[in-house]
């Protein structure tokens, strides 16, 4: 399984930087917002966590459709599915999600503090937003795996994956943003929404790979 993780990591880094595209998109979204809403620093600081989360969410959806499609196109997916007796297919999917997250989403989390400065956020707010992104974005990868598995046979499934996945990641977004707000606005609590989001991540870490494995097994042709 470690071999699969390392292979996917290598492919993501070597095959033309999926991670870099995600960061550029993230940067573009965040950089455009201040021009759009105008130079009101208080307003920017207030919407900052939400914009960071939305940007990261959209950027994380970018490379998702290639999660299984690349393997399907060169025949590797058949071999991964066939090896299900030795390496449980759901676990294989889980490892692929982790590798995708490490290569394409973790860089977004790392870039988030810098982009938080664009939004005139205070240090505590930036730290909270980054922490919630770190804990919340794996859920996006795990939910996204289901969409990617369902659309694996479609040649232009990219947008479809995003549309399928988006409604399911809304709860993660809501709790992530409210936890980020909880850290900077006084009466709102930080811990309850943060723990809810952590629970969502853990829940989808199990359910996502299982559902994706089922979809992959039945989408073979």
């Amino acid at each position: 399984m470690l071999a699969l993780y390392i292979r996917d990591l290598r492919l993501n880094i070597r095959a033309g930087g999926g991670a870099l595209v995600g960061i550029l998109f993230f940067l573009a979204v965040i950089a455009v917002v201040p021009f759009g809403v105008g130079p009101d620093l208080n307003l920017l600081a207030r919407i900052g966590p939400a914009i960071l989360w939305i940007g990261a969410l959209l950027a994380a959806l970018l490379g998702l459709d290639r999660l299984f499609q690349a393997d399907r196109e060169d025949g590797s997916l058949d071999l991964l599915v066939m090896n299900g007796a030795r390496q449980m297919l759901a676990f294989t999917v889980f490892v692929k999600c982790l590798a995708h997250w490490t290569a394409s989403v973790l860089p977004l989390v790392v870039a988030a503090p810098l982009l938080g400065l664009f939004m005139n956020m205070e240090p505590v707010g930036i730290a909270a937003a980054t922490l919630t992104l770190l804990v919340g974005t794996p859920a996006i990868a795990f939910i996204g795996a289901v969409g990617a598995a369902v659309a694996v046979a479609l040649p232009r499934g990219g947008l479809l994956v995003s549309v399928l996945v988006l409604p399911l990641v809304i709860p993660v977004l809501i709790f992530g943003v409210s936890a980020s707000y909880g850290a900077i606005t006084e009466p709102d609590p930080f811990l309850p929404p943060f723990l809810m989001m952590t629970a969502l991540t853990l829940f989808f870490a199990v359910l996502g790979p299982l559902a994706a494995a089922l979809a992959l097994r039945w989408s073979a042709d």
């Binding site: 492919l11 070597r14 095959a15 060169d74 025949g75 071999l79």
Partner: peptide
């Protein structure tokens, strides 16, 4: 061993 080789071109 199907029509596709199951190998990654970047590796």
């Amino acid at each position: 061993l199907g029509h596709l080789n199951g190998m990654k071109v970047a590796l």
